[in-house]
Design a protein around this nucleic acid. Structure first.
Lengths: 243, 243
DNA sequence: CTTGACCTTTCCCCAAGGGCAGGGCTGCAC
DNA sequence: GTGCAGCCCTGCCCTTGGGGAAAGGTCAAG
């Protein structure tokens, strides 16, 4: 009969692991020899290998203990569940691996797919990186604070950008950043934006400002702080819409 | 700015997880508002998503912390290592899944491949299940106690079984189990076995009994206990070899 | 003004072992 | 027969990545 160390080497685990399995009732304690050493037979090796097979599948030891006293039918059923779960875990790991490679490729973070797709559209339409960052932050915060309404707002925004005329207004807003605050083109742009807004939403319901309350205001504040031209533009638009 | 709960829901983790990341220095503590609540911005969300991507790949949090202060080159290198490790883990899980299915299919335990292949050969050659169990236990114990010599002995045994004449002797040994202890065929078999042994190993070096000392003796004891015929057979063989 | 849903900190708990201390056994070499 | 290395024994604390509860402060809505 073999000692705990020999059994451990044969199966490829540590002696501590075997003792833990005894403590938790997974593997019965074997007989002791005259000096109190545990002595194992071939059967114990077989049982231990079975236990390791289950443990390596990630099954909690407590569940393995219960499984060992289950009937054949329950046991088969449990194995099927474990098999499915393993398949899912493998799929999950592959997905993680994909995200990791995106991260390595320089994509800064795997945002929710809707947002990152939106940002890629902006790139193609010629918006500046500055605008993209703003949009990214805005949508992250809106989705975080108002998950339900965010989807509606987001779809509305997507629609608006699909219209070339409206898209041009957004592009103009983006590029107005670098104008002098008193440039007359700003007054003109404010006028056109206010008009388009009224056309699209009617006179008095502006969904963005309504629904998410303080968040766009906060973003707008940051936005304005970045450029006197944007600040004046925002002021003019509000004045025209309130009138 | 959003609260810890909103950030947690957005990224899909618990608030506790975020606090743990603060404690461990993974994610910097954000500013607090007037009532002491943590307030997060869009940047924190992005950082947290990055951290989760790494954490879901199974990277220890301490390593993630270090990675965040690593240079681009080191970071890329680390990501490559992690990618390889993930690939290895996926392969490992698939292997585990295979072993699990073997277990479900009724194969009692995935023994080391050499042993299970040996046992399958025995089935094909017509040995009894009783003999197979004996062989299985014997080889498990020998491989556990004397891993180095076990391989040599095992190859020797494989060779012997490849010889039809020798194989027939083993088969006869197997079937002698059910004979009467005084059956004259036992004397005849003992004679033939002793002769074959001398032919194969020369007069005085019997590798099995030499090298692994007490183990085969122990097995032989169990074996003999199972059948008076085997007991007498063993006695006769020893007598002839010692002579 | 209360209620429920948040937030704060601190503390203990879990799995699955790893590692150490402090002691006993055994086998081999000298 | 003595020393020493390498096993074995038990008992205890340590780790990772959080979970959960306690005890209290805050906020928004009815």
């Amino acid at each position: 009969m073999i000692t705990i160390g020999q059994l451990a080497r044969y199966v490829g685990v540590s002696t501590k692991t075997i003792r833990v399995y005894h403590d938790k009732g997974l593997l019965p304690e074997p007989e002791r020899d005259a000096s109190g050493y545990r002595r194992y037979g071939a059967n114990d090796a077989i049982e231990l290998i079975k236990i390791r097979t289950l443990a390596e599948a990630g099954i909690p030891l407590a569940r393995i203990r219960d499984l060992r006293s289950a009937t054949g039918e329950d046991f088969q059923q449990a194995l099927r569940e474990i098999d499915d779960e393993l398949t899912a875990r493998i799929r999950g790991l592959r997905a993680t691996q994909g995200r990791l490679r995106q991260l390595a490729a320089g994509h800064p973070a795997p945002l929710p797919t809707q947002i990152s797709a939106h940002l890629e559209h902006l790139v193609r339409w010629g918006f500046t990186p500055r605008w993209m960052d703003l949009q990214r932050d805005l949508w992250i915060l809106v989705f975080a604070t108002h998950p339900d309404q965010a989807i509606i707002l987001f779809q509305d925004q997507t629609e608006a950008l699909a219209d070339p005329a409206l898209r041009q207004l957004f592009l103009d807003y983006d590029h107005a950043h670098d104008l002098d605050a008193n440039d007359p083109r700003i007054d003109d742009l404010a006028h056109r934006i206010a008009e388009a807004t009224r056309d699209r939403y009617g006179a008095d319901e502006l969904p963005e400002l309504d629904a998410t309350s303080e968040i766009p205001a906060l973003i707008q504040g940051t936005v304005n702080a970045a450029s006197p031209a944007w600040q004046r533009l925002d002021m003019l638009i509000r004045a025209q819409l309130d009138a």
